[in-house]
Each structure stands twice: as structure tokens, then as C-alpha cells.
């Protein structure tokens, strides 16, 4: 199942007011720290993967020949995935407001 299909199939909808609903509390109280943690984790993973690929670039053949295109492919995949995620988030925001 691809990412888009998975996101479309996730359950979203209306529920009555309940005092201890986690998603409500998080949106209300802890939104900023959650986004900060997410950005931190993504930055750490990207730095780690970049470091490993940079260190092993010569042995993996990523700096010459066909290997150079691997970078472009990876960057392309990251951009497409990020676009899909951002658009999904925007749709959710529109539905919410």
C-alpha cells in the first residue's frame, strides 16, 4: 500500500466532547514542543544518513559515473514525499478550520 493510499484510508471524523481526548489536549497545549521534536529527529536522521553516505561515497561509487545520479534520485524522492505530506497536512487544516 503506498503512502497516499495509507493516508486516505486513515480514519478521521467527528467525536463528541470528551475531557481526556489526547488529540485535543495535544493540539491545545503541546503543539510547539511536538513540532520541535519532529524537526530535531528529522534533522538528526538526515545528518546521520548524509554522513554515512558521504563517508562511504567512494566505496559505493556515489561520486563518479552512474552513482552520481543516485543523489538526484534520493533528493527527488525526498521532495515528492515531503510535498505529499505537506499537502495532506494542508487538507487536514482546511477540514479543521
Amino acid at each position: 500500500m503506498n503512502l497516499l493510499r495509507y493516508l486516505e484510508n486513515r480514519i478521521k471524523g467527528w467525536l463528541p466532547k470528551e475531557p481526556n481526548v489526547p488529540s485535543c489536549q495535544r493540539t491545545h497545549n503541546h503543539k510547539a514542543p511536538k513540532i520541535g521534536i519532529q524537526i530535531g529527529i528529522v534533522t538528526f536522521i538526515m545528518g546521520f544518513v548524509g554522513g554515512v553516505l558521504g563517508a562511504m561515497g567512494y566505496s559505493l561509487g556515489l561520486f563518479f559515473g552512474v552513482g552520481v545520479y543516485v543523489w538526484l534520485i534520493v533528493i527527488g524522492i525526498v521532495i515528492v514525499a515531503a510535498t505529499i505530506l505537506i499537502r495532506t497536512k494542508q487538507k487536514k487544516e482546511q477540514q479543521r478550520s
Binding site: 471524523g13 467527528w14 463528541p16 481526548v21 488529540s23 477540514q95 479543521r96
Partner: peptide, 25 residues
């Protein structure tokens, strides 16, 4: 969040809120 207030004769009034992850409940 958007909210909806509904009425039913057997259960009365209820206030509903939009949830992105209702499975958390």
C-alpha cells in the same frame, strides 16, 4: 476546530469536534 452541536429526542444535546486521529480514543 470545527464543532457540531446536535439534538436527538432520545439522547438530547451533544457537542462534536473534528478529530484527525479518532483511533486514539
Amino acid at each position: 476546530r470545527k464543532a457540531i452541536v446536535t439534538y436527538s429526542t432520545s439522547h438530547g444535546i451533544k457537542v462534536w469536534y473534528w478529530h484527525d486521529n479518532p483511533e486514539e480514543v
